[in-house]
């Protein structure tokens, strides 16, 4: 009060409608707001209680969320209905500085800077070069320390160092994810089984899906690769050639493998060629055979990289 008079500001008329609250009956509104805020406070206390007596999300959310809803409603209503309704106005000022200020500023850059820089152009160039190089230098550890480069070695071996390799080699024993060896008769006609080379159960690039077709279908399954299967069992890489999801969805009647991620459809009967969807290439086939005691082994490795496409892929 004292400050208002000391500032010498003149009082405005009291009957300005802009300074009245929006509420027609402010006293009633205030009672409603009090109720809301009290409900809110009750909710906050309720949350503490709900937390104390148990751990049920619903009670906690109802008390905390409900409390905040009422409380926020009250506070907002206070601002909306009981404070001066306005409208008030504020002048905008130009964003751009005055012409003289601009030219002065620009002159500092162009003339003062130019005076120094043009005389020693070499130094300016070196400054730019050095700044760029220091950024590049920092990028070395930042990027290159992250991980290894993909190996160019395409012989089967450690799959972690190349996109082209798997651990399947001729003679790899076929095992399930539980490291159980697989016999031919473990699969019924129309059955599927996810397998790995022994010693690498669970490895991502090595996953293979075994499908047992009846023999007539199996001959069709791989044109020119009739001896890649074993008693109707054919083995394909389970990695989708689109984005590497496991192609685990097998439709027995239509002999289709469907990728659950983006619904590429592979025709098992024609060597898993993609017949629909975004996948570009057939699933690579793994030649398999059975040992004399009936266990399945790989009869070679994949003849191409498994999984999605990449630049170095031949």
């Amino acid at each position: 009060m004292s400050s208002s008079t000391s500032n010498g500001q003149k009082p405005v008329p009291v009957d300005l409608p802009q300074l009245r609250p929006l509420a027609k009956r402010p006293e009633h509104t205030q009672v409603l707001i009090i109720i809301c805020m009290l409900l809110g406070i009750a909710g906050f206390i309720g949350f503490m209680v709900a937390y104390w007596v148990g751990n049920q999300s619903q009670w906690q959310a109802a008390s905390l969320g409900g409390g905040m809803l009422f409380f926020g409603f009250g506070v907002t209503a206070w601002g909306k209905y009981l404070m001066p309704r306005g409208p008030f106005v504020e002048e905008r000022h130009d964003f751009d500085s005055s012409t003289s200020a601009r030219s002065e500023f620009n002159a500092v850059i162009t003339q003062r800077g130019g005076l120094v820089a043009k005389r020693r152009g070499v130094l300016l160039g070196l400054l730019a070069l050095g700044s760029g190089l220091v950024g590049l230098a920092l990028a070395f550890p930042l990027l290159r320390s992250l991980g290894p480069n993909p190996s160019k070695d395409t012989s089967a071996g450690n799959t972690n160092d190349s996109l082209s390799n798997t651990n399947w080699v001729k003679g790899s024993t076929v095992v399930t994810v539980d490291n159980r060896r697989v016999k031919v008769d473990d699969l019924e006609v129309g059955g599927v089984l996810t397998v790995f080379p022994a010693g690498n159960a669970g490895s991502s690039p090595d996953q293979v899906i075994l499908i047992r077709l009846d023999n007539a279908q199996a001959a069709q399954a791989a044109p020119g690769r009739a001896d890649w299967g074993c008693q109707g069992i054919v083995a394909f890489s389970k990695l989708c050639t689109h984005l590497g999801c496991p192609v685990g969805l097998y439709q027995q009647q239509t002999q289709q493998l469907v990728c659950p991620c983006h619904q590429s459809i592979f025709n098992v009967n024609a060597g898993c060629v993609p017949e629909f969807g975004p996948a570009p290439r057939p699933l690579p086939q793994l030649p398999i055979t059975a040992t004399s005691d009936g266990y399945l082994v790989a009869n070679g490795s994949f003849n191409q990289p498994v999984g999605p496409g990449f630049w170095e892929r031949p």
Binding site: K183, D185, D186, L187, E188, V189, G190, G191, V192, L193, Y250, Q251, Q252, Q253, T254
Partner: peptide
Amino acid sequence: GPGNMPRFGSGN
């Protein structure tokens, strides 16, 4: 293995 569902024997 009804319909399109694969069949899983007891070896699988």
